[in-house]
Design a protein around this nucleic acid. Structure first.
Length: 875
DNA sequence: ATCCCCTGCAA
DNA sequence: TATTGCAGGGGAT
């Protein structure tokens, strides 16, 4: 006694269940095997070992089949739902993990994990251990003693509460053993233990305070207050005794374990790597440093002499392909500092060209021919940055054939991020270690590409994604690099004027607001604003957020007439948004040399295949309000040029018409009718000419809603009608466009059966949660199943258009530049001399890029800046 | 510093 | 409790 030995006993069943419900079922291996519970459990186990450093640890499990409790009471746990199908196989997995950790697994026929744990806890106490029981089951609290405490996972698996003797006494006002009596009296719904009718926790606790134990209560029923209660206790005395007996954790399970064998030792490293690898727990593997290190030593050769570069060039001209990657240091805004270049001719032969020793321009001059030669295939990780740097250096890379990150994006479009290190881990089972020398590190990154190309392209072939990869995504890299390099010119003076004007207005409005509020506060703080509006001014609360009152525009809109402060706040919000999100940040991103802004267009972000834009995001520049639209004035065409905007008219609805095959919808577009008016006419049953403004507006919302996987609730909120009314509209819509309804059902069905949905060009999105038992998650996945083929196909079409237009511009040696892509719109900068030719070419190329059941129509606009643009009528 | 929440901008 | 994104400011840690 008294020495510091700790014994940890884990309730495997309880913890695995907890983990299962706490983590998304979408946590699965690439084979679709759900691993969320194992992951959660393993993570918790690791944390436990690290933080608590126990001497001994074991995990107990229930076995299938009846226990001694069932013999006593057939209904025991009878109402328990069956273990979910996705959880069942995870028990075997977790046992493999435990085996690798050399942690004993305890099970015994006829007993629950609780009983095994209880018995061993007592044995441990006798042998002088401080015992800790880890479980998500409160029943275990009856086991608490001076020497035994419980770690209870309150919610999920990370929120843990420790119960020692004092904590149990405080919470229940009872001794731990009395918790058994408590259950005898009050029962337990979750285990189907009956207890005594009419006795809940309050009464049970009171009775136990008075009589100490169930037996004493029953022996003194005459002293219990309340006639009905007496009656129930008398009648159900036997049931109470049985309940108590069921609730008692067995402490004398016949076990022949020797606690000596529970001593925690080093895991079986090899087995652990295998198991965690199989489960694809890469982050855990990394934490454990479980990967062997590739023997990269003296495979990468450092080059510091120009003569060596010349030799390399000779070599490169003879190979069929090579991989390369620049080593960028600080990714400064306008200036990419480049430290070196790694090049590999094969997985075994790689070089690092150190630009601190070599003149960058000289090296590039030597390599230029190799980079430009189409016949030599190039592999590059994060190719866009590399292509962009070469472009800046005046070299047009040709023959780009593989980027591992891009391949991974098509294979796992919903991943959070893509990294070479991660790919190397999963597919090559090696660590791209960071503790190498710079040369080895950089060369390793290009050496691995050859093997990754083979593995990932095989995967792409199997999923019918290779063509999309080779013909679309890889060629698009160069175009995106071009967009970024081109940038768009910004009128800095105009920007400063805007900023000053907004500042002045904000100042003015905020003063009025403070006046009305009779105090100064931070108008940018929703919290403070909420206090002022709903407490100080007593305005009615429309909606609450998790943290307080909602002050969103939709709420304020409803309060507009209630207090003159509201319109001012709305106005303030609008200007503040414009100034802080658009005007001021834009100024910082102008390249002072060129007066242009060079946004990043990211190809690896969206789950649907769209592009995204950052630094700044040029895909969400305001347009809907007059004040917002002002911002567009600062984006201008260079001297002697015009901006040309080409946008696909109603592309998503045309795509929907095509993939659903709905005749009526197709006809709308063939006849080039106004689609919203037509929908209004169908849904509201009036002639197209009779459609009112409001009806068209509502129909527009319905059309949008359809593409998003509409719900009555969402539509109702959007157009501010009752949910019932929205439901009627939707039903009417489906009546009129039955094939659209069929499409939605089929898409969801496909996701359920195949696990994914596809776009026109075969892009995939996996939707594992479509089978989730959680209503919200399942519904969400269903809406994605409806929306992704629509949004994704439109994205495919736009990418095709970019390729076609860029190709033609190059072919015809036109000076017109592509500047921006905004999902359904491309913005070009056109020399005035090229205008006529380019307008026609762009319209034709974009409209003719794919053949659908509906025509594709491009609207063209032209102007000196992005705000003042005029429709162009070609024909 | 970093993260989460609320808000709001676009297609 | 409508799809896909990016980003600012406030505020807690």
């Amino acid at each position: 006694m008294g020495d510091n030995k700790d014994l940890f006993l884990l309730d495997g069943n309880s913890l695995l269940h907890r983990a299962f419900y706490a983590l998304p079922e979408s946590l699965e291996t690439s084979q679709g095997q759900c691993t969320n519970a194992v992951f959660g459990f393993t993570k918790m186990l690791l944390r436990l070992i690290e933080e608590q450093d126990p001497n001994a640890l074991a995990v107990a499990f229930d076995l299938k089949g009846p226990t001694f409790r069932h013999e006593e009471y057939q209904q025991y746990k009878a109402q328990r739902k069956e273990t979910p199908d996705k959880l069942k196989p995870q028990f075997a997995m977790v046992k493999e993990v435990l085996a690798a950790f050399k942690i004993p697994v305890l099970e015994l026929e006829g007993y629950e994990a609780d009983d095994i744990i209880g018995t061993l806890a007592r044995v441990g106490e006798k042998e002088g251990y401080a015992v800790t029981i880890v479980t998500g089951d409160r029943d275990a609290l009856q086991l608490v003693t001076e020497q035994t405490e419980i770690m209870y996972t309150k919610r999920g698996i990370s929120n843990i509460i420790n119960y020692d003797l004092a904590a149990v006494r405080e919470e229940y006002e009872l001794e731990p053993q009395q918790l058994i009596d408590l259950k005898g009296l009050m029962g337990d719904k979750s285990d189907n233990i009956p207890g005594v009718d009419g006795i809940g926790i309050k009464t049970a606790t009171k009775l136990l305070h008075e009589f100490d134990s169930l037996e004493e209560v029953l022996a003194n029923i005459d002293q219990v207050s309340g006639k009905k209660r007496k009656e129930n206790l008398t009648k159900q005395a036997e049931q109470a005794r049985m309940s108590k007996s069921l609730a008692r954790i067995e402490l004398e399970v016949p076990l022949d374990y020797d606690l000596q064998n529970f001593t925690l030792t080093e895991p079986d490293q090899e087995q652990l790597i295998e198991v965690l690898g199989k489960l694809e727990f890469n982050s855990l593997l990394q934490e454990l440093g479980g990967y062997e290190t590739l023997s990269f030593s003296d495979q990468g050769q450092l080059i510091t002499e120009l003569t060596e570069v010349e030799d390399l060039v000779t070599k490169l001209k003879q190979v069929a392909k090579f991989s390369f990657n620049f080593n960028f240091s600080n990714t400064e805004l306008y200036r990419q500092e480049v430290e070196g270049l790694a090049i590999a001719c094969s997985a075994e032969e790689a070089y690092y060209l150190d630009f601190n020793e070599l003149a960058t321009t000289k090296v590039l001059a030597l390599l230029k021919e190799c980079f430009k030669q189409e016949e030599i295939a190039k592999l590059s990780p994060g190719a866009k940055e590399n292509v962009l740097f070469l472009k800046e250096s005046g070299i047009e890379l040709a023959g780009l054939s593989f980027d591992p990150l891009l391949a991974d994006y098509l294979l796992q479009p919903s991943a959070k991020e893509y990294s070479l290190a991660e790919l190397v881990q999963t597919h090559l089972q090696h660590e791209l270690a960071e503790d190498y020398s710079l040369v080895q590190e950089e060369t390793a990154a290009v050496r691995v590409l050859f093997e990754l190309e083979e593995i990932l392209e095989e995967e792409l072939v199997q999923r019918d994604l290779l063509e999309l990869f080779k013909e679309m995504e890889v060629p698009l890299v160069a175009i995106l690099a071009e967009l970024e390099l081109n940038g768009i010119m910004v009128d800095r003076l105009e920007l400063e004027r805007l900023s000053a004007a907004l500042a002045e207005k904000l100042e003015e409005i905020s003063e009025q607001v403070y006046e009305l509020a009779d105090e100064e506060f931070n108008l940018n703080s929703p919290q403070q604003l909420g206090d002022i509006l709903f407490e100080k001014l007593g305005l009615p609360v429309i909606k609450k957020t998790k943290t307080g009152y909602s002050t969103s525009a939709s709420v304020l809109e409803k309060l507009k007439d209630q207090h003159e402060i509201i319109p001012l706040v709305l106005e303030y919000r609008e200007y503040q948004k414009l100034k802080s999100t658009y005007v001021d940040p834009l100024a910082d991103l102008i390249n002072p040399q060129t007066q242009r802004i060079h946004s990043s267009f990211n190809q690896l972000v969206t789950a649907t295949g769209r592009l995204s834009s950052t630094d700044p995001n040029l895909q969400n520049i305001p347009i809907r309000t007059e004040a917002g639209r002002e911002i567009r004035k600062v984006f201008v065409a260079e001297e002697g040029h015009q901006l040309l905007a080409a946008d696909y008219s109603q592309i998503e609805l045309r795509v929907l018409a095509h993939i659903s095959g709905d005749e009526s919808l197709i006809q709308t577009f063939i006849e080039e009718e106004d689609v919203h008016t037509r929908t209004a006419s169908e849904v509201f049953g009036v002639a197209p000419a009779e459609v009112s403004y409001q009806q068209r507006r509502r129909a527009k919302a319905i059309n949008f809603g359809i593409a998003y996987g509409i719900s009555p609730w969402g539509l109702a909120k959007d157009i501010d009608v009752s949910q019932k009314e929205a439901e009627d509209y939707i039903n009417q819509y489906f009546e009129r466009y039955p094939r659209v309804k069929d499409y939605m059902d089929q898409s969801i069905e496909q996701a359920k059966e195949e696990g994914y949905v596809t776009t026109l060009l075969n892009r995939r999105r996996y939707l594992p949660e479509i089978k989730s038992s959680n209503y919200h998650r399942r519904s969400f996945a269903e809406r994605m199943a409806v929306n992704t083929p629509i949004q994704g196909s439109a994205a495919d079409i736009m990418k095709l258009a970019m390729l076609a237009v860029a190709e033609e511009l190059k072919q015809e040696q036109l000076q017109t530049k592509i500047l921006l892509q905004v999902h359904d719109e491309l913005v070009f900068e056109v020399p005035k001399s090229e205008l006529g030719e380019v307008e026609e070419m762009i319209k034709a190329k974009m409209e003719g890029v794919i053949d659908l059941a509906t025509p594709l129509v491009i609207d063209l606009k032209i102007g000196a800046n992005w705000r003042d643009m005029e429709e162009l009528a070609l024909e």
